[in-house]
């Protein structure tokens, strides 16, 4: 457990020192939201209807953007190699890395969601469902995304490839996440889709660390 908390502390300090890595995706989220408002003319009716879709799609994309940096620095300075070789068990240290990544991407976006909802005129009654979906669903984004980041970390230009690898795997999270908010807006009171998000998160929590480890081993060999 001390390995886990030490890794947690290290990642936390590193991300605070490199705050631009955290801030840029969040700024992108709001910039892109305003682009949607500009492109649709800013009419409240249009924006309200599309608000769940816009927010969820942009959360996916902002998450993708933050993934690039997940292993990059550690890969370049050699820490990652040591971690994969020496940490016992390595998947626990990786889990700590992903957890910190989620705190600064998924959780941060969740905390900012009310603001995004406000400028997109999302009804206040649908806001709890948006936040609940984000809290339950975004860990899965970080975990699944970490597999893609681990596969592409050794490549010179991995950005577009990372999107191609990861976005199809994000589809279920998007459908359930945006679907939950849409159902709430349509007046259907149900938590079924949130439960499904929970299933996806739990499944990726158990499986993804091992896939990340296997992927990193491949990337480090190159």
């Amino acid at each position: 457990m001390s390995l886990f908390s030490a890794q947690l502390r290290r990642e936390w300090l590193l991300l605070i020192q490199h705050s631009e890595e955290v801030l840029n995706p969040l700024l992108f989220l709001f910039l892109a939201i305003s682009l949607f408002a500009l492109a649709t003319g800013g009419g409240p009716d249009v924006l309200r209807d599309y608000a769940p879709a816009i927010i969820w799609v942009l959360v996916l994309l902002a998450n993708l953007m933050s993934l690039e940096g997940l292993f990059r620095r550690d890969y370049e300075d050699g820490t990652l190699e040591l971690l994969v070789l020496k940490a016992e068990p390595a998947f626990l240290a990786l889990l700590a890395k992903v957890l910190v990544h989620w705190t600064f991407s998924g959780l941060a976006m969740t905390l900012l969601a009310p603001l995004a909802a406000l400028i997109l005129y999302l009804p206040v009654s649908a806001l709890p469902m948006l936040i609940l979906g984000l809290v339950v669903g975004t860990p899965a984004l970080s975990l699944i995304g970490a597999v893609g980041a681990a596969l592409t970390v050794g490549l010179k230009r991995g950005g577009a490839l990372l999107a191609l690898l990861v976005l199809p795997l994000y589809v279920p999270v998007l459908i359930f996440g945006a679907g939950a908010v849409l159902e709430q807006m349509a007046g259907i009171e149900t938590l079924a889709q949130i439960y499904w998000l929970g299933v996806i998160t739990m499944a990726s929590l158990t499986l993804a660390p091992f896939a990340v480890l296997a992927a990193l081993r491949v990337s480090l060999e190159q």
């Binding site: 597999v147 596969l151 199809p168 795997l169 279920p172 459908i175 359930f176 499986l207 296997a214 992927a215």
Partner: peptide, 18 residues
Amino acid sequence: AVLALVGTVNIPIIKYSV
């Protein structure tokens, strides 16, 4: 191989969600 495995696990979930 890693990607194909992750995809295979995901296919049922994708099918169900869709």
